[in-house]
């Protein structure tokens, strides 16, 4: 960099995101980083809520996975590839495999316990101040689905979202929107 005396104006000095300062200063955005810092925890809470509420209200594993995945997209856009790796240290294959394992395990457990593939059950209990709680066994299935969807998002972000290799001359008319 030839003119390193010139500091970009809107670069936050404090570390809002874990690894956001490892990207090119010209590409950083205070607004996005601040937003991601504030919103991402809430996004995860919403995802968990959607996961649990599925059988009674709109939601479920697919929606939960999509919301959690969008949270990762936000972190990626705000903080760059390093930030994405910090936000989700697991490889996409691990998430996909873990999700498939949960789904298959759920299916097999039904066979072992009741002799029927994918058999479900609902346990209800009185949990003090939480009131009446119903726990369906299909939560395991939903969690598996959610993991697979997050894995899918992560796969997309790490491949299509990868930056151009530095040693390759970029096309003159290539456009950067991030």
């Amino acid at each position: 960099m030839t003119d390193d005396h010139r500091r970009p104006v809107a670069v936050p000095r404090s570390r809002l995101l874990a690894a956001a300062d490892r990207q090119d200063p010209d590409e950083r955005s205070l607004l996005l980083e601040g937003l991601a810092r504030m919103v991402h925890p809430s996004i995860l809470v919403v995802a968990v809520y959607l996961l649990f509420v599925g059988l009674h209200h709109p939601g479920g594993g697919f929606a939960a996975g999509l919301v959690a995945g969008l949270g990762l997209v936000l972190r990626r856009l705000a903080g760059g590839p390093q930030e994405l790796a910090t936000a989700m240290p697991l490889p996409p294959g691990g998430l996909l495999g873990g999700g498939l394992l949960l789904v298959a395990g759920y299916a097999a457990t039904g066979v072992v316990v009741t002799g029927q593939l994918l058999a479900g059950a609902v346990w209800s209990l009185e949990a003090g101040f939480l009131g009446h709680v119903e726990i369906p066994s299909s939560l395991v299935l939903e969690l598996g689905i959610a993991l697979i969807v997050v894995g899918l998002t992560l796969d997309v972000l790490r491949t299509l979202g990868a930056d151009e290799p530095a040693d390759e001359p970029a096309d003159g008319n290539a456009e950067r929107t991030t």
């Binding site: 599925g54 299916a107 369906p136």
Partner: peptide, 16 residues
């Protein structure tokens, strides 16, 4: 089978 939201019960139970 789990809850009143038929769409999701179909996904996780009836058509699991």
């Amino acid at each position: 089978a789990g809850g009143p939201n038929v769409t999701n019960v179909i996904i996780t139970e009836f058509r699991a």
